[in-house]
Amino acid sequence: MRSDDAARPIPPGSVIGVLGGGQLGRMLALDAARLGYRCRIFEPAEGCPASHVADHVAASWDDRQALSAFAAGVDVVTLEFENVPVEAVDFLSGLKPVRPGGEALKIAQDRALEKAFLNKAGVETAPWAEVSHVEELNAALERLGRPAVLKTARFGYDGKGQAVIRAGDNPAQAWAAVQGQRSVLEGFVAFSLEVSVIAARTPTGDIRCYEPVENRHRDGILHKTLAPAPIDADVAERAVETACKVISSMEYVGLLAVEMFVMPDGRVLANEIAPRPHNSGHWTIDGCVTSQFEQTVRAICGLPLGETTRLGAVEMENLIGDEVERWPELLAEPNASLHLYGKAETRPGRKMGHVTRVRPGA
């Protein structure tokens, strides 16, 4: 694609192809429709949440014929799920602009590549080591100390594919817990809180960030997000600078979430990146001038980025598993906005929806 083509906006009335059919694709399609765009979802699973609100192609990621037909019906392609095979993204990139593209996806899919990229970009992380067998794990523990966290290099999320190694623990048991997969060992850092920053970048390099928010987890899954994060202004500025550095270093187009640890001394350590809208950005739907989903549309289509001003003090609470059965009381709660994802089956640990509470003026 020529540079002048990349800079040309994709106007309302166009079709956005979305790779992945979960709740992020569902919310993206809803906000895209408000701006006059249609969405087309590529997702192997029938009846996915996004299929309720947009056209849906149900085919395998390695079905080149289906991918070609999908590309023929869209104007730009984006991600709502980072475990899309890179091969599918690279194939689509030869047919239509994919924003973000395969290189960003490769980095986000592999914790070792991710941490190496962050460090090369001048972004500090927790101490870490790549390990491919138990002997390397033992050597890494000698260097990094205990406690430490062993995480599979690929396909781990919401606390899955992880094992904590404490003093006295047998490393072989942790290695068995990750099923002997290539992994990353992270040295323990006594952080004060976890924050994230959502950043957006257009094809012409314009960047806009949302302010840092605090993320509170329960059983390894995000439970609540609080905006603003309870941190000093200089720490917030460092967090935003970190997100800007990451998204600029990748020459990224689209929306990127950067999760970080805030240390007691005010340092900010990058933890993970996500090349898509993010659970910790759901507060923006009701609590911000421009939601993260609208911002995604603006970024990938080359439109002016939206204002990120917060509308008050915001709390976003995930509804995990059977917590979704609280929907009657949540609908009756003043100043609460309920978002249900339309998932047919309720399972423990599954994100079924979220509720947002906004205190204007706070």
Rank of each mutant, 00 (worst) to 15 (best):
R2F: 15
A6H: 10
A7R: 09
P12H: 09
I16R: 04
G21E: 03
G21W: 02
A29C: 08
R34L: 01
C39S: 03
C39R: 03
E46T: 12
C48A: 09
P49Y: 01
H56V: 06
S60R: 05
R64A: 12
Q65S: 10
S68L: 04
A69P: 03
A71Q: 05
V76S: 00
V76N: 02
V77K: 05
V84F: 10
V84P: 03
V84I: 11
P85D: 14
V86R: 01
D90P: 09
S93V: 13
I107M: 14
D110L: 09
A121K: 14
T125R: 14
W128L: 14
V131G: 08
H133F: 08
A139L: 11
A140P: 11
R154C: 07
R166N: 11
A172M: 10
L185F: 02
E186L: 03
F188Y: 06
V189I: 08
V189A: 01
S192I: 08
L193G: 04
G205T: 12
T225R: 04
D232S: 11
A239T: 13
S249G: 14
M250L: 15
D265I: 15
N271S: 07
H278C: 14
H278P: 15
N279G: 14
T284W: 15
Q295P: 12
L305S: 08
T309G: 14
T309N: 13
V314G: 01
N318E: 08
R326V: 15
L331P: 11
N335V: 08
N335D: 13
N335I: 07
E345T: 15
E345F: 13
R350H: 15
H354W: 04
